[in-house]
C-alpha cells in the first residue's frame, strides 16, 4: 500500500530516534515500507495440522510453515477471509509475531488465565487451544466496541473455556490467576507495515501518556497473579518508554526472566535509553524487529511474580 510523501517523511523522521538501537537500521526502514505476508494459525480445537494442510494442498493454496511455530503458516493467498477453512474456524488470520506472547506465557490445561487487554481475541483463542479448552481464560477488554469482535472471534474458533468481561483493566476485580497476559494498548509502531498511517500519530508525548496506563495495567495483572506465577507483557511498538520503561516500574512486584524461542530472531531489551537507566536485567526482555523475521514489530517481557511482593 503506497504511503503519501508527507506521512512517509514524518514516519522516517520519527523512526530516526531508533537508529542507534535497531541493528542494520537501513534494512529495518526498508522492511517497514513493505507489506506483511499473509499469516494464519491452525486452530487445533477444530482440526489438526495434517487435516488442514491436506485441505490446502487439495484447494491449491500455497503455504509455508513457520520455522519457530508448527501451527503458524504463511499463505499464498490475498484474501484468507474468503477461504472455507476460515469460515469453518480451522484457521485464524493472525499476524505471525502476535502468535508469540501465548507461546511465551505457555498456559496449561486446567489453569486460570487472565488476558487483560484481549480484543480482538486471537491470542485468547490461541491460549484456549493450548489449554485444550480446559480451565479458564478471562478475556477482558475495557472497550465495549471491541467486545463485539472479541466475542465473535472466540465463538468462531470454538473457545469454550473463556468468559468475556469488560472492566477497566486497572481496576480489574480481585481474583487469583495462575498466569496473566498483558498485551497492552500501545502506539503500535510495529504495525506500520499493515497500517502505514500509524507512525504519523506517534510521538514521545503519546508514548509517555501510554506509559502510565501500561504501568497501571501491568501492576494490576501482577497483583492478580499467584506468587510465583508468570505474567507476560507485550506491545507492538518499538518505543522504549512503552516497553523497558514500563517493565522497569514493576520490578518491586516481579522479576524479569529470560526466554528463547528457537527459530525466531530477536534483539535484547535495553538496559537504558535517553538517559533513563532501566536496569541490567531488562536485557532479558526480547525485541522483535520487522527485518529480523519479516514480521511486524513486537516487544515481549516474561515476568514472574515475587513470592513476597512488596505491594
Amino acid at each position: 500500500m503506497p504511503i503519501s510523501i508527507h506521512s512517509s517523511h514524518m514516519a522516517s523522521e520519527h523512526l530516526e530516534r531508533y537508529r542507534d538501537i535497531i541493528p542494520d537500521f537501513d534494512a529495518f526502514l526498508d522492511s517497514m515500507s513493505r507489506p506483511l505476508p499473509v499469516t494464519v494459525r491452525i486452530n487445533t480445537l477444530k482440526t489438526s495440522a495434517p487435516e488442514l494442510l491436506s485441505r490446502l494442498d487439495r484447494a491449491g493454496v500455497g503455504y509455508e510453515r513457520m520455522r519457530w511455530y508448527p501451527l503458524g503458516l504463511r499463505l499464498d493467498v490475498e484474501k484468507p477471509g474468503r477461504l472455507m477453512e476460515f469460515h469453518m474456524g480451522l484457521i485464524h488470520v493472525q499476524e505471525e509475531i502476535s502468535m508469540l506472547p501465548p507461546v511465551v506465557l505457555d498456559p496449561l490445561p486446567g489453569e486460570r488465565i487472565l488476558d487483560l487487554c484481549a480484543a480482538p481475541g486471537g491470542k485468547a483463542a490461541q491460549m484456549s487451544m493450548q489449554m485444550s479448552n480446559r480451565g479458564l481464560i478471562v478475556a477482558n477488554d475495557s472497550s465495549s466496541a471491541r467486545i463485539v469482535p472479541l466475542r465473535a472471534n472466540l465463538e468462531r474458533l470454538g473457545a469454550v473455556n473463556t468468559i468475556v468481561t469488560s472492566y477497566d483493566g486497572r481496576r480489574f476485580p480481585e481474583y487469583t490467576f495462575d498466569r496473566a497476559l498483558v498485551d497492552a494498548p500501545c502506539s503500535s509502531e510495529g504495525t506500520a507495515r499493515r497500517h502505514p498511517g500509524v507512525i504519523s500519530r506517534c510521538s514521545v508525548k503519546r508514548s509517555m501518556d501510554l506509559q502510565s496506563l501500561q504501568v497501571s495495567l501491568l501492576r494490576r495483572a501482577i497483583q492478580l497473579t499467584k506468587p510465583g506465577g508468570v505474567v507476560v507483557y507485550s506491545t507492538c511498538t518499538f518505543a522504549p518508554e512503552e516497553n523497558e520503561g514500563v517493565v522497569s516500574r514493576v520490578l518491586d512486584l516481579a522479576d524479569v526472566e529470560s526466554f528463547t524461542v528457537p527459530g525466531l530472531r530477536s534483539s535484547p531489551g535495553l538496559p537504558s535509553w535517553n538517559g533513563n537507566d532501566y536496569g541490567e536485567e531488562l536485557v532479558k526482555c526480547r525485541r522483535y524487529y520487522p527485518h529480523e523475521n519479516d514480521t511486524g514489530g513486537f516487544f515481549v517481557a516474561k515476568l514472574r511474580r515475587r513470592l513476597s511482593a512488596g505491594e
Binding site: 477471509g81 485464524h92 488470520v93 493472525q94 499476524e95 502476535s98 487487554c117 484481549a118 480484543a119 480482538p120 481475541g121 486471537g122 491470542k123 471491541r146 469482535p149 465473535a152 472471534n153 468462531r156 498485551d183 497492552a184 494498548p185 500501545c186 503500535s188 504495525t191 499493515r194 497500517h195 500509524v198 506491545t235 507492538c236
Partner: peptide
C-alpha cells in the same frame, strides 16, 4: 470481517 484487521491500537 477480518479478525485482526479491526484495530489500530495495540494487539495483533
Amino acid at each position: 470481517a477480518q479478525p485482526g484487521d479491526t484495530q489500530q491500537d495495540g494487539t495483533e
